[in-house]
């Protein structure tokens, strides 16, 4: 197995002056990401996500532990690595602020030594996929946040990197911009088989883009697996909301499932159950046997809640 990212027991400490103390931002973290994998890297503020990203891109040395990214040591080989990875820091810009967006792509393309024809083809794909055409000739400083972020992603993907690291790429974007960005990222990964590491506070990003989720807390891995597995392992209940055609006081439910609320005079029933015990379909069949269902919806537990629960359970 070749690892795109291989972090072995990395620790990073910062010395804070006044009062003098050592803060451990990352604490003995081990993380391996296979070639082609898409990993959501999630945690509360200050959990160590950004510090980890800085270490794996080579702009920060770990205090202890070994880091290999695409087989390279990031700090000494930072500029080599920069040719093979694409990074978006949601809070920072890699575009030239006062130049038209198009110029940034021209400069980055020649920095990455792309052949002119390959660069033109790749840029055309990015312009189309991220809908950049309307503002390609505007100076970056005039772009809206959503436009600039699409530009940032295009800049990170221009050289067709093997590994893409996105640090909060959707921060501050509206729903439509977020969705457009996610759709393109999914497409581009499908076309090129890129490895993706994504940090975000928006759990919809993880659900749409990642197969695997790694939750960090206090600089350590709190969970590593699938999103569904995370839900199951925590046994966070799912919630089924059914609206009945005619009011009904009580629904007979199998053991383990329970009605938590009856609203609108018996029309709307909120039912909680565990995925491990019941399937939503079986539950629904049981309900439709008793009453006509006019409408229904499923509420998945938000990942924020899951993460909070993991943290609460940690000793």
């Amino acid at each position: 197995m070749t690892w795109a990212i291989d972090l072995q027991n990395i620790t990073r400490e910062f010395t804070v002056r006044r009062p003098r103390r050592v803060v451990r931002a990352v604490d003995d973290l081990t993380l391996q990401v296979a070639d082609g994998e898409a990993v959501g890297f999630v945690g509360a503020n200050g959990a160590g996500k950004s510090t980890t990203i800085k270490m794996l891109t080579g702009i920060l040395m770990p205090t202890r532990g070994t880091v290999r990214v695409l087989g390279r040591r990031p700090v000494p080989e930072r500029r080599h690595l920069a040719r093979e990875i694409g990074v978006v820091f949601g809070q920072r810009s890699q575009l030239w602020w006062d130049l038209p967006l198009r110029d940034s792509f021209a400069i980055l393309g020649s920095m990455h030594r792309l052949a002119p024809s390959a660069q033109a083809a790749r840029l055309a794909r990015l312009v189309e996929g991220l809908d950049l055409a309307p503002f390609l000739d505007q100076p970056v400083r005039q772009l809206s946040l959503g436009q600039r972020m699409r530009g940032e992603v295009a800049a990170a993907l221009l050289h067709s990197p093997r590994l893409v690291v996105l640090d909060e790429p959707t921060i501050g974007l509206d729903m439509i911009s977020k969705e457009g960005l996610r759709r393109f990222l999914v497409e581009d990964r499908a076309e090129r088989g890129t490895t993706l590491l994504l940090t975000t506070h928006d759990m919809a990003d993880v659900e749409r883009l990642c197969e695997r989720i790694v939750v960090v807390s206090d600089g350590r891995t709190a969970y590593d697996g699938t999103l569904a597995g995370l839900r199951d392992s925590l046994r966070t209940p799912r919630e089924l909301v059914v609206d009945l055609a005619a009011p009904l006081g009580v629904l007979e439910l199998p053991e383990g499932a329970q009605t938590v609320a009856v609203e609108a005079g018996g029309i709307r029933h909120r039912i909680r159950f565990h995925a491990a015990e019941h399937s939503a379909a079986a539950l629904l069949a049981r309900i439709t046997a008793q009453a006509e269902v006019a409408d229904l919806s499923m509420a998945e537990p938000a990942i924020e809640d899951l993460v909070r629960e993991i943290f609460a359970r940690r000793p």
């Binding site: 800085k54 891109t57 080579g58 702009i59 930072r78 500029r79 080599h80 920069a82 040719r83 990074v87 820091f89 920072r92 810009s93 890699q94 980055l108 920095m111 990455h112």
Partner: peptide, 10 residues
């Protein structure tokens, strides 16, 4: 922002 400069291949 220097982080961005350091991540360029130049």
């Amino acid at each position: 922002e220097i982080a961005v400069d350091l991540l360029r291949p130049a």
